[in-house]
Amino acid sequence: MNNILIIEDEVRVLEVIKAYLEREGYRVYCAAKGYEGLDLFNKVDFQLVILDLMLPDIDGEDVCRIIRETSKVHIFMLTAKVELRNKIQGLNMGADEYLTKPLSPRELTARVNALFRRMNYSKSTIFSYDNGRLKIDREKRSVQVKGEDIILTPNEFELLYTLASNEGKVLSREQLIQNIYGIDFEGSDRTIDAHIKNLRKKIEDDSKSPKYIITVIKIGYKFGVQKDS
């Protein structure tokens, strides 16, 4: 599970971001002050820090500098400072994203999900299941079943890869839509159901009794098979 540290002194903002990220399955730690956040950072292995720049005890910029002295952890800066020079300064300081308030928690969540997709992609581009029966190659955007190439549409591939890269995690239709279409999608969430039906016909031995793409009633879908070791 990926660990995220939020350093933010606005309690309401902190609570909302935490709730959204925990709903995505992340383990979230919170600090309302800079030094408190640094203390937590030294105790836990974090993959992402979401850092407000206007803190009551120490500037967020200083927190970023201190973290960067010892760590390459990803840092998202949150701030009300909208000037271009502030953004450039923050990025030069070592931030990976510079996001201005007010910020939609859905947008922030989509950016966090995109970050971890990229991180997972960089670790491995080929997923193999059932002793190689099913193979998903992210780099080539190809899928094989029993050694045969399976033709998927771009959206079908993204849906399959999203489920596979979140192995065992239940994803709602809304989460899948955000991952595949982005947060501005205006169609029906039942679009996902149509893609799932087509995917099952292409990769499952029995589409009516699937083992790869599992329906979780009233919630969404999950990938039901573990990767080959």
Rank of each mutant, 00 (worst) to 15 (best):
G147N: 04
L48Q: 12
E158I: 11
R200N: 12
P105R: 02
L115F: 10
T215L: 14
I203K: 00
I219Q: 08
P154T: 00
P210M: 01
V112L: 05
I192S: 02
V145F: 05
H195I: 05
P105W: 02
N42M: 09
K135F: 01
H74A: 11
G220T: 14
G132K: 02
K211D: 13
D59C: 12
E61V: 01
V49T: 03
K211H: 14
R141S: 03
I177F: 10
E148Q: 13
M93A: 00
K123F: 00
V82M: 09
V145E: 10
L48D: 13
G60V: 08
V73I: 15
M1L: 02
Y26S: 15
R106V: 10
I7M: 05
S142Y: 04
K87T: 08
V16S: 07
I75E: 04
I151N: 05
L91N: 03
L159Y: 00
A114D: 09
I192W: 06
I67C: 06
I7Y: 09
V73L: 14
A114C: 04
K140E: 09
A19L: 12
D57R: 12
L108I: 09
D206I: 07
M119N: 14
K72P: 03
E61M: 07
I66A: 00
D52I: 01
K146D: 11
L14D: 07
Y29F: 15
K197S: 11
G168M: 01
N198R: 13
